[in-house]
Design a protein around this nucleic acid. Structure first.
Length: 635
DNA sequence: CTGCTCGGCGCG
DNA sequence: AAAGCGCGCCGAGCAG
């Protein structure tokens, strides 16, 4: 009998327990205990039955399996799913969600150190302390938490030691973890899903989140192909040859001298915003900051070389030679993706700024010999998501078979594509000023359902409520300070100043919840897309291996996978494999002869993601696909 | 020296 | 043109 699930846990350091369960979560066969080095072979053997691997943290277990050439098809990431199920309104009445916090609530992904408590910005709220309103012990608000807007605390760690330390620290704080903890947690999660008010949605979300965790580990494992040579050539073109440590590149030195002479100030230092601001003022240039857009409006001969300096200097500090030395190893950039790293459900990343790769350096992303990059981008994803969420038939029609913004222009609502775009972004972000605010009334007339949907999400947030994505990811509650401010401003005798600040804060939180429903549902779409892509690429690799056994990966020589090449992870580097992910964009690094097939699968996967989340809703999710040999040639 | 905040800017 | 969402990373500059 083949188990539906296998729970992986660590009963003692260095030992691993594998417990097979049937589809009802009951034990199915005997558990196996083994030592950590034997895990990969044991997983490879059991993977032939395609169980769902149930473990506390994909980041903790999967990298070592991949390193041992073992791919798994499916998993449940208990840490990520716990976070979703604890907060979701769909599972709010479950045992899991109503129980007091456990060690699962404090888990941080392996590979990252434990988060340090972030200092809450005092300036907005500090005079609340003077007013001082005691909170009764039985007040439900006593369980209020700080808004988790932080996240910058993650430092860069690599390797399992850091992960062990991080997890050990959490255990010490949350109480000793016991044998069987994973099984109990899994049972609670299954119960929460089964008793949810809409089980299919939350079940899909949990599955998508987990497959995303597998894809993230595989992405890091494979890496993004990176040409150090091309990168160096690009840097030399913009900055001059690599200077000695601590010296300014020639082109920056040249611009610096030009700036100083044109300002008539031999000490002007463009590297320090504070110093630069002073120097500009000494030269009679009055600005409030040294931000690019503000400097652009100034008429002065020093401005042009200054902006040029800032641009090139940014390249040097963010993606210069030091970056290249640090992050590119053997022709690959291995970014660490963090699924669930953003409150909305988007991925975050740490190390090397993987999700901020400037367009300027994308020419250094080059396919290997005999391979191509297939780059796919979901076209106008967020407004399409909004159209589907709101069931806005007019907006769905505007996007059918064409660019959505062009369709909005064709509907007569606005006169240019740029207006359509800035107007929609404003509607989704809560912009009121300028061009975007001026477009809103027209959009509201043409697409009342879509605009009403985001307006309702904003109103909910402004009054302290929570909102949910299509699949049930729920926004955090506002912080204690926010709620106190809200209550105080509503009470008798509140000052005008207090009320004004409360209104400002309310609007701000409303913009967050307004955006949460769209960004979060778009993230769900992207998870489903990437899950489908992952399955399709694996099938493509297997079919190719069967058709061309001579050129296929030599999995048969590997003892751990000899019996079943489809469990070998080497197709994740030699076959068509995901190599980059950027919110609504993916890149596949593929043998050239499969590029067209990959492009087809990327489009099909996008359509599949739309059906999974929105059923038969008449909204299309087109993707633009480019087959290129370097990333800068895509779009 | 380390650790932190801030201004600024890269991405979607 | 420069407001509105979500992030991570850098150097400067300050505190300890």
């Amino acid at each position: 009998m083949t188990p539906a699930y296998i729970v992986v846990s660590e009963p003692r350091p260095g030992r691993v327990l594998l417990e097979p369960l049937d589809s009802d979560g009951a034990p199915a066969g005997s558990a196996a205990e083994l030592s950590r080095p034997d895990l990969a072979a044991a997983v490879a053997e059991r993977e032939r039955d395609r169980p769902r691997w149930v473990w506390n943290d994909t980041q903790r277990w999967y990298p070592a399996l991949l390193a041992a050439n073992v791919r798994v098809d499916r998993c449940i990431d208990l840490r990520l799913c716990h976070t979703i199920l604890r907060a979701s309104t769909l599972t709010a009445h479950s045992t899991l969600a109503t129980a007091p916090p456990t060690a699962w609530d404090a888990l941080r992904p392996a590979g990252a150190p434990t988060a340090t408590p972030k200092q809450v910005e005092p300036s907005l709220f500090d005079d609340l302390a003077d007013i001082d309103q005691p909170v009764e012990p039985d007040d439900p608000r006593s369980t209020r938490h700080k808004s988790p807007s932080g996240g910058a605390e993650r430092a860069i760690f690599d390797g399992s030691m850091a992960g062990e330390r991080a997890l050990g620290g959490e255990r010490a704080r949350g109480g000793e973890r016991e044998v069987g903890d994973e099984r109990r947690e899994f049972a609670l999660q299954r119960d929460a899903i089964a008793t949810a008010s809409d089980p299919s949605r939350i079940a899909l979300l949990v599955a998508a989140e987990s497959v995303g965790a597998l894809a993230a580990a595989e992405l890091r494992h494979a890496g993004l192909p990176w040409s150090a040579e091309r990168h160096d050539a690009l840097l030399t073109r913009v900055l001059g040859p690599r200077p000695r440590e601590g010296e300014r590149p020639a082109e920056l030195e040249r611009l610096l001298q030009s700036i100083r002479s044109l300002l008539g100030d031999p000490t002007a230092n463009p590297d320090s915003p504070v110093e630069l601001l002073k120097a500009l003022r000494r030269a009679g240039i009055t600005v409030d900051s040294t931000r690019e857009w503000e400097l652009k409006s100034i008429k002065h001969p020093a401005i042009e070389p200054l902006l040029d300096y800032k641009k090139r200097s940014r390249l040097l500090t963010a993606n210069g030679w030091n970056w290249l030395d640090t992050w590119v190893v053997d022709g690959r950039f291995h970014a660490n993706y963090l699924p669930g790293g953003v409150v909305t459900g988007r991925w975050a990343a740490e190390g090397g700024g993987a999700l901020q790769l400037p367009k300027q350096v994308r020419g250094a992303v080059v396919a290997d010999e005999g391979r191509m990059l297939v780059v796919a981008d979901a076209a106008q994803l967020e407004p399409r998501i909004l159209a589907a969420l709101a069931g806005d038939r007019a907006m769905a029609a505007a996007g059918r078979g064409r660019d959505l913004y062009d369709g909005i222009v064709a509907s007569g609502a606005v006169d240019t594509r740029a207006h359509a775009k800035v107007g929609m972004l404003g509607a989704m972000y809560g912009g009121t000023a300028g061009e975007s605010g001026r477009m809103l009334p027209r959009l509201a007339r043409a697409f009342p359902a879509a605009v009403a949907y985001v307006e309702a999400a904003a109103r909910t947030g402004e009054t302290g409520g929570v909102v949910s994505t299509r699949l049930g990811r729920t926004s955090p509650r506002p912080s204690d300070e926010w709620l106190d401010l809200h209550d105080l401003a509503a009470s008798d005798g509140a000052t005008d100043a207090l009320r004004t600040r409360a209104r400002t804060e309310a609007r701000s939180w409303g913009r967050f919840t307004r955006n949460f429903v769209v960004q979060g549902t778009a993230a769900e779409w992207a998870l489903c897309w990437i899950g489908s892509i992952r399955r399709r690429l694996h099938a493509l690799a297997a079919a190719d291996a069967a058709a061309n056994p001579r050129t296929a990966p030599a999995a048969a020589t590997d003892p751990t996978t000899a019996a079943d090449p489809t469990t070998a992870a080497d197709t994740l580097t030699t076959g068509p494999h995901l190599s980059f992910f950027l919110h609504d964009e993916v890149m596949v690094h593929t043998p050239a002869h499969l590029a067209d097939a990959v492009a087809h699968e990327l489009r099909e996967a996008a359509a599949e993601a739309g059906r999974l989340i929105f059923g038969d809703a008449p909204v299309e999710f087109p993707v633009t696909v480019a087959i290129v040999d370097s990333y800068d040639k895509a779009k």
